[in-house]
Design a protein around this nucleic acid. Sequence first.
DNA 1: CGTCTCATTGATCCGCCTCAATAGCTGTGG
DNA 2: CCACAGCTATTGAGGCGGATCAATGAGACG
Lengths: 245, 245
Amino acid sequence: MQINRTPWHFDHIFPLPVSVQGADDQKWQEVLLQYVRPVSKGATLTLEGAPWDAMICVVDGWLSLSKSLDTGHVQIIDFAMQGDIVGPASADGVTSAVTVEALTDGTAAIIPPAVWHCLQTQLPGLASLVQATEAAIRARRAERALRLGKGSAEMRVAHALLEFGVRLNAPFGQVYHIPMTQQTLGDFLGLSSVHICRTTRRLARSGILEVTDHMDIRVLQPAELAKIAGTDPEALRREILPMQT
Amino acid sequence: MQINRTPWHFDHIFPLPVSVQGADDQKWQEVLLQYVRPVSKGATLTLEGAPWDAMICVVDGWLSLSKSLDTGHVQIIDFAMQGDIVGPASADGVTSAVTVEALTDGTAAIIPPAVWHCLQTQLPGLASLVQATEAAIRARRAERALRLGKGSAEMRVAHALLEFGVRLNAPFGQVYHIPMTQQTLGDFLGLSSVHICRTTRRLARSGILEVTDHMDIRVLQPAELAKIAGTDPEALRREILPMQT
DNA sequence: CGTCTCATTGATCCGCCTCAATAGCTGTGG
DNA sequence: CCACAGCTATTGAGGCGGATCAATGAGACG
């Protein structure tokens, strides 16, 4: 289901939680408001290989970016959430490299390339934001690629749960929800849903975390989990959370 | 070995093969010349976690970007070659997310963040180049992540060899060289060197390609190889080769 | 000629996939 | 209210792909 492109009216979202430093912010917020629209759970924004040239700025909710093989196997490349600015277009600039789907109801601004190009040159503050966001995206994708290639199932799961916690800004010990099934998490980590189940159960049984009610996560032993994930939560935060300069 | 940062003198490289469209090109070439320097095979430009904030523009030769686990396992995130512009910095902007090493002798420009920021705003042509390059990088990394997560060893090897051929612009049937050992290719594909060996031998025995003299590749049956890789060479070219608009 | 690195091949093992069955939960209609 | 369907989670059994360990070639180089 391709979402339509008519402007949407939002009176109730002020200000949008994706902001730019300095004087450029007002203009940026205006543009965002102009292109922002609701996205409903399960909706497909674009398909791998389909025509697409716009930028997507996530205001609220979760999106998944995925690719698939003709065997039917799906690999989720990344999740995008509040504040992420993603360009699904591939090198030719007019084709989507990934399928973008909504994991939850949410809102996103879809900004045409002409407007985007214009903004980039006119708003230096936006350029900084974009660079910071892109560095964060690269860093977290690299971190995952490392574990996808060389890590055990346990390490992948531990790292993913820590990453979600960091990105959601959830304090340790607090419950946070990730809006996906074990199947989806498996598609993200290159594992079968069955093995996701076994792995999370094992972590739960050893008292490191609790998983309740369809993916409500509570980390009980952050240090243990971090050790399994092969990372340090503080370092991870610095590495993958965009920081505007 | 950290390379030094004193300017280097090049009289013999004109023009640099990393060019920008339009009137900005001259300025860009000047800046490149100012920061370009030779890199020798085996040299380490930066280490994962070390201080780093510069951009790297590859003029000639191959670089590898890698991360490693404390088990000693290494995952190569990407190779950078002629024309690639890579930012190894993570989200904090001052730490390298990856280790950057030279696989061959070559030349690269290392551009300080202040200069880079300045260039971005002053040279719109450069901004376009960067966006195109980044889209290409994202697309090829996504393509690999898919196979890293869901593909067989055979598919990963086939895809990597096709990707190298495309990036090197090697016509089908022609020999091209990839400057790495089977171990390095394994670190790239998430496979052991032993399994790289078995897989390439199997492909060679079935007449799909030839591998001679330490990674001189010759694809004999491009269609077969593409089928195994789960891709179409033309589509791959469009998707992962940067095209300036 | 000895050493070093890299490629190749065999043997064995194990982590994860696949298939399959059951259980729990939610919503729907009679 | 229960019966049922549909989806997700859980657990077991068996198989396979790729890792690991180990030994032998094969060049390259001093």
